[in-house]
Amino acid sequence: MATDVSAYEEMIKGLWRDNPVFVQVLGMCPMLAVTNSAINAVVMGLATFFVLVGSSFLVSSFKTFIPKQVRISLYIIIIATFVTVVDYSLLAILPAIHKELGAFIPLIVANCMILGRQEAFASKHNVKYAVMDAVGMSGGFLIAMLALGSVREILGVGALFGVDLFGSNFEPWVIMILPPGGFLTLGLLLLFFNWFTERRRQFLIKVADADRVLAVEKVDAQGVKDNG
């Protein structure tokens, strides 16, 4: 039980330490398919946010009523309901973006990150932690989507959220808005993420070592004083 961990930490871990994309490498289908512009990435991230938080809340609330044998089917029913709600709402409110995202909105059902959170977390924790976890995880997903979408839109079109950045003379990197660009950018971002995490770990080790040396010196100095 996670009673000893604060709900805040449950949320933060999804953003960075256990980021669903950069660390768990989950949800790759929407990640690669709809990040060809920042706005598509953000809408997809928000849709996933709504579905994940909603289903985590329901699964956690009803966890005592859900029989173990049919839990996966029930999770999928819950998730699919939220996805359908998102699908029709987007079609009504933002038809242009719905057209771009196309088949990938219904495919949120198949996003393994969402089912994974139900099975691994929401079904075992109480509502408060389950919702915080879902917020963190889908927040992390949104950040990753935004990072990928921004890089691809800036290089591929020379704009961000449709705002021209470089003027009309910009030479677009066509490959970036095509599927290979998704794989390339994701690979490079993973590379950067791992490099940064490793650097940070090395730095923390160094700091810890320095602290220990300092502490030892302190003790020694204390000992000398005492002896003197």
């Binding site: 030479e171 990197w173 066509v174 490959i175 970036m176 095509l178 290979p180």
Partner: peptide, 10 residues
């Protein structure tokens, strides 16, 4: 191949 995919016209 990267250049051809990225800058097909140039």
């Amino acid at each position: 191949a990267f250049l051809l995919g990225t800058f097909p016209i140039a």
